[in-house]
Amino acid sequence: MQLPRDALLRAYRRMATIRRFEERLHDEITSGEIPGFTHLYCGQEAAAVGVCEHLDDDDMIVSTHRGHGHCIAKGCDVIGMMKEIYGRRDGLCKGRGGSMHIADTSIGMLGANGIVGAGAPQAVGAAISAKLDGKGKVAIAFSGDGACNQGTTFEAMNMAVVLKVPAIFVFENNHYSEHTGYQYAVGTSHDIASRAEAFGMKAWRADGCDFFSTHDAMRDLLAHVRAGNGPAAIELDTERFYGHFEGDPQRYRGKGELDRIREERDALKIFRTAVGEAALLDAADLDAIDAEVADLIDRAVTEARAAPLSSPEHVLEDVYAEY
């Protein structure tokens, strides 16, 4: 199904924002201003945006330690995110979550998570609430080829099937669980989606470096889940351009591997080629978005640097939920 022009421009803007945001973090982390571990999402932009372009604020997602892309794709404020990563008082989580714990429940972003595989049970809980609410909403657990080996993920998939809730398990297979290749670590013929099928749910597979492949597969998957057929899963074959964490020397990569994937599997290049060949968008339209996004990220860094840090008197705030 061909998307309208405004939808294509929005999708590219979100992918370009993820790319520029992450590349700027890569540069800024060397300054020592950003505390804590950071795991960059560069290369996987088409996966996050291809999934989240189908969602609204009432649909819920749970992210991972590599969560910036999911946050931006779901609509989190980019300047608030940058302030959060810088540990500032007016960040999205008041500077207390940092890179791995960004959340904005007002738009259905239930939080990133530093524990591998911990998001799946949370998404099932959210899916139970969505089923009880009866408004056709869904809850999505993003995870990777590492989380597919976790018992929490298995238990969550089983519970989702038993309770027939609208939970969706998105496995972004970027080929490395930290530093271990999935060919070695995943025992199901290198096929993560088949694990979900074994629990009794329907599973899709798509190219996670191609926005259109991901978007089309998610359209069909969401129609299936929103119709009341219970949970589903999708495996997205994708790539990460940087290491598992910032500072990872990536000695586990093959010779020329990064050069190859940046040339052949760059989600933004693939999108530009597709819309150009189909005469859907002009290069000038996309170049203008790139310039606007660059200005936005520059402003986000400037404002984050100038924003105040939390003070000791705030340490006991938000320890408990207030009703």
Rank of each mutant, 00 (worst) to 15 (best):
Y320A: 10
F241D: 03
M157W: 05
L296F: 02
G230T: 15
A130F: 00
G276V: 03
R10Y: 05
D56W: 04
L280A: 11
D318I: 01
E33N: 08
P249C: 09
G50W: 05
T188E: 12
S177H: 01
I72P: 00
P166N: 09
A103S: 14
L110K: 13
G114L: 04
G187C: 14
T17W: 04
I61D: 01
E264V: 10
A291L: 14
E53V: 13
Y182L: 09
H224W: 13
A147D: 00
G228I: 12
D210M: 10
T302R: 14
A16K: 14
G208I: 04
I140P: 02
V62W: 09
V319S: 01
P166D: 11
D90Y: 13
R205L: 08
H175L: 04
L280G: 01
P121I: 10
A167T: 11
T38N: 12
F37D: 11
G91E: 08
P249F: 03
S194L: 14
F245M: 07
G69L: 01
S143R: 02
S189R: 15
L286D: 01
T153E: 00
V275N: 02
D207A: 11
E303P: 07
S143P: 01
D210V: 11
H190C: 12
F212D: 08
T153I: 00
A16V: 04
I72W: 00
M159Y: 03
G200Y: 02
T238K: 03
A11S: 14
M82F: 11
I261Y: 05
G200T: 08
E23Y: 03
I140T: 09
G111C: 13
L3K: 12
T188A: 13
R13C: 02
G50R: 04
L268F: 05
E317S: 11
H39M: 08
F245V: 10
G111M: 08
D56T: 14
